[in-house]
C-alpha cells in the first residue's frame, strides 16, 4: 500500500488527528443542513446587515489567533496572552452581532411554518454559534493554563489544537456566509 505511505512517514499527535476527524464529522453535519436548505423553496429573507460586520469580526479573530500562536512559539508569553484575549473578545463580538441578526430576523416576522429555508438558516447559524461559544470556552481554558504557568515545557500541541479549532469555526462561518450569499 505504497500510496498510503504518507500516513506513516510523519505521525501526527493522536489528539490532533482526533480533532481533525471530529472537524470532518462537523463538516458532514453542516452538509446535511445545506442539503436541506437547497431542497426547500428559497427563503423569503435576505441575510441581515449585521452578518457582514460579524463576519468581519470572526475573520479578524482568526488573524489575531494566528499572531498569538506565533508569539507563543517565540516564547513571548505576555504578548501571547494579549492576542488570545483579543481573539476571545472578537469572538464575543461575533456572538453579539449574530444575536442582533437573530433579533432582526425575528422582527421581520418570519413564520416558521411557512418558510422552511429561513428556519434552516436559523438552525445553521444557531449551531455554528454553539461551536463558537465552545471555542471561546476552550480559549479561556487555554489562557488559564498558560497564565498559571504550570509547565515550563513549551509544548505547543494543546495551543495548536485550540488554534485549529478556532480557524475551523472561523472558516466554517465564512463558508456558510459565502454559500448563503450565492445560493
Amino acid at each position: 500500500m505504497v500510496w498510503m505511505s504518507f500516513l506513516y512517514h510523519k505521525k501526527m499527535h493522536p489528539h490532533k488527528l482526533n480533532l481533525w476527524l471530529a472537524l470532518g464529522a462537523i463538516v458532514m453535519f453542516f452538509i446535511g443542513f445545506l442539503c436541506v436548505y437547497l431542497m426547500l423553496p428559497p427563503p423569503s429573507v435576505r441575510l441581515p446587515a449585521s452578518c457582514w460586520s460579524s463576519t468581519g469580526a470572526i475573520v479578524l479573530s482568526g488573524l489575531t489567533m494566528h499572531v498569538g500562536v506565533l508569539a507563543f512559539k517565540r516564547r513571548q508569553l505576555l504578548l501571547h496572552e494579549m492576542w488570545l484575549m483579543v481573539t476571545g473578545l472578537l469572538g464575543l463580538i461575533f456572538v453579539l452581532l449574530q444575536l442582533v441578526a437573530f433579533e432582526q430576523v425575528y422582527h421581520w416576522g418570519i413564520v416558521a411554518v411557512h418558510d422552511g429555508a429561513a428556519s434552516v438558516l436559523c438552525v445553521m447559524a444557531g449551531a455554528h454559534l454553539l461551536y463558537v461559544l465552545t471555542g471561546i470556552g476552550v480559549l479561556i481554558a487555554s489562557l488559564l493554563r498558560v497564565h498559571r504557568r504550570h509547565f515550563i515545557l513549551y509544548s505547543a500541541t494543546g495551543l495548536e489544537e485550540t488554534a485549529i479549532y478556532w480557524y475551523f469555526v472561523d472558516s466554517l462561518w465564512l463558508g456558510l456566509f459565502i454559500f448563503l450569499l450565492l445560493a
Partner: peptide
C-alpha cells in the same frame, strides 16, 4: 460512520424541531 452519522444527526434535529418548534422542514 464518521461520514454518514452526522447527516442523520442533522436530520433528527430537524425532525425534533418539526415536532416541537412548529417548523415545516
Amino acid at each position: 460512520g464518521l461520514l454518514s452519522f452526522p447527516v442523520l444527526l442533522a436530520g433528527l434535529i430537524f425532525l425534533m424541531s418539526d415536532r416541537h418548534l412548529g417548523t415545516s422542514f
